[in-house]
């Protein structure tokens, strides 16, 4: 109903985060900005009724690649600001919770109609529902675990 307005808002967020990559002084913040633009692109896929592609974009690029990049970059930091650490933790929890939220929305949509590419995978979603729920829970636990690991090996500076 409000898809054009939502598309405009998400597009603005994506362009701002894309530009802000090159204004950040630390690579860590640039990677976080790239993750935000990945999330915005997955929202665009969702607006275009391509829920399966949105899910894969969120799983592979936000959940996998961006986390991999953040961990690789943060391994170089010996000291980190306490407020920045809290921000990273909150962002990790919100991102991991967005997996379950998106999955719930996709499951709701595929039970009624299966538009776009998800028509090939609608039955697979229903058949492998417990496996996907387990994957979402594992991703959530992995995000919390990564925050705990960073907390253990990085000295916090208040």
């Amino acid at each position: 109903m409000y898809s054009v307005e939502l598309f405009s808002i998400v597009s603005v967020v994506m362009i701002i985060s894309g530009i802000s990559i090159f204004y950040q002084k630390s690579i860590m913040r640039a990677v976080i900005a790239l993750s935000i633009s990945f999330i915005a692109s997955s929202l665009i896929f969702f607006i275009l009724n391509q829920q399966f592609i949105a899910l894969l974009q969120l799983f592979v690029f936000v959940g996998g690649m961006s986390t991999y990049l953040i961990v690789a970059v943060s391994s170089e930091y010996k000291k980190i600001n306490k407020i920045d650490f809290i921000k990273i933790g909150v962002a990790a929890i919100i991102i991991s919770m967005s997996f379950s939220l998106l999955f719930t929305v996709i499951n709701f949509n595929t039970s009624n109609t299966a538009p776009g590419m998800s028509v090939y995978f609608a039955t697979a979603f229903e058949e492998y529902y417990p496996v996907l729920v387990a994957a979402v829970i594992m991703l959530f636990l992995a995000a919390i675990g990564s925050v705990i690991v960073i907390r253990k090996f990085v000295t916090l500076v208040s």
Binding site: G18, I21, S41, F45, L48, N49, Q50, Q57, M117
Partner: peptide, 15 residues
């Protein structure tokens, strides 16, 4: 970012 834009264009034309 360029790769991401190409994916969005691909999905848009697909839709």
């Amino acid at each position: 970012l360029i790769f991401m834009a190409s994916t969005i264009a691909f999905v848009g034309f697909y839709s």
